[in-house]
Design a protein around this nucleic acid. Structure first.
Lengths: 242, 242
DNA sequence: GTAGCACCTATAACGCCGCTATATGAACTG
DNA sequence: CAGTTCATATAGCGGCGTTATAGGTGCTAC
């Protein structure tokens, strides 16, 4: 416990490992690369982390803390389903932001050395769903719902990561998200209470379009697209805050 | 091309690799283990397969042929949605029967050395969906539907594999399956095609909303969502065909 | 002081890995 | 039988994760 004396080596190892992992495009990262980048010799690594996997576990733990922070920064908005959407999107976004880290966290599924991250993410999601179960109506137990959502969420994220950047489209994510969510919870009961008083032009136009769409479905949008479009339209129309 | 003379070495390598991979519980399998089990020295392996990855590709190809055979043995029953269910279940079953092989085939996602299996599975599923699109009504393009279904299918299978055998429950699979399928295709007969009414109202409203959005961006939609929303809005506004 | 004692880091090496330069045999072809 | 081609083996390279051993460094006890 020296207050002054820890400029780095353990921390340098962590940083170096994280950086090399992020850069290396899926290629394995060797301990020698790491120790060299951290300007440290091999035993230092094993003294502090015991193992190569121990080091990577620490890296993952850091990334996972960031992930959970982002998750926790999504507050309960009063609309649980909407919260679930944001959590889903946050999950996907994290995967696309840190693909290599994500693959270590969620892609490397070995029964023996099970990363606790999956279980933790599952538990966290379950918690969100428990709130959803209280507020809105949940069709299954939070546990089952969490597993289903997380499985689909991971599957989608892995597929998006494996796509090249230009081919990548979030439509896959949005579509699958809506599919799973709508099956797990009753989407929304509340029809919009519309007061056209001091509402912005955007809201008015959105409501008008929504009304027009009731009588005529455009064929430019596919079913799920239309469904989602209508929902977004609904979201814009029912702006309650501020 | 000798008709008689191939009792084994190449084939023994394949069998040995497959066996060792299936037995080794996720632990890496070395070329030395394989060549020793096949009673062959190292260069033989590289002569026939070029690479360790080449050998495993061959193993995967064998497993994938088995997988595709099972897939193809599922005939068109006349009920396309029911067919899709069977394909989903077959996918999951294959993953649980050959977990290690499955992890190599679908879990190891590297952008560089992309396993062709995923693409092939996707294409195959797309073909099934194209039939579904003809018979029943599909609500999205077969391509999009295939990607969504496959992503969820892989995610579920990976999660089931990572579960211990006793904790494993197919409820997760069935639940997620129904969620994705019901969102992608109308289960029974479809809702009537509504193209009748006067469309201009929609177009006008869409243009108005688009204009309103230029000056004021709603905060109910996240960045990617808004982008997609605007694109769809544009699609609706510029209806020119038919 | 200095002796003892944790702690942290470095030197050097072990055994395993994927892989290959080179050589040898075996089988066809002329 | 000479020539060519294919298939296998000997022996070894460089890189990997890891560690036995030893050397500093700073703290506390006398």
């Amino acid at each position: 416990m020296k207050s002054t004396g820890d400029p780095a080596p353990k921390l340098r190892l962590l940083r170096a490992a994280a950086a090399l992992l992020a850069e290396s495009d899926g290629a394995p990262v060797s301990t020698r690369q790491i120790t060299e980048a951290a300007k440290v010799t091999a035993p230092t690594l094993y003294h502090h982390f015991g193992d190569k996997e121990g080091l990577f576990d620490a890296v993952v733990a850091e990334g996972f803390a960031e992930y959970l922070d982002a998750e926790r920064s999504i507050p309960a908005s009063g609309q649980p389903i909407e919260d679930l959407r944001r959590h889903w999107d946050n999950h996907v976004q994290f995967g696309l932001d840190h693909p290599q880290l994500y693959l270590v966290m969620f892609g490397n599924i070995r029964p023996e050395r099970r990363p606790s991250t999956v279980a933790t993410a599952e538990a966290f999601l379950e918690e969100v769903l428990r709130r959803a179960a209280a507020a809105s109506r949940l069709v299954v137990t939070p546990r089952e719902a969490a597993r289903s959502i997380l499985a689909a969420n991971i599957g989608v994220t892995l597929m998006l990561i494996s796509d090249t950047a230009e081919k990548r489209s979030l439509e896959l994510s949005v579509m699958t998200r809506e599919a799973v969510l709508s099956a797990v919870a009753t989407d929304s009961e509340a029809d919009p209470v519309i007061d056209t008083e001091g509402t912005p032009a955007v809201v008015v136009a959105a409501i008008a379009l929504n009304a027009a769409l009731q009588s005529s479905h455009p064929d430019q949008l596919s079913g799920p697209e239309l469904k989602l479009f209508l929902e977004w339209l609904h979201r814009i129309s029912s702006r309650s805050a501020s």
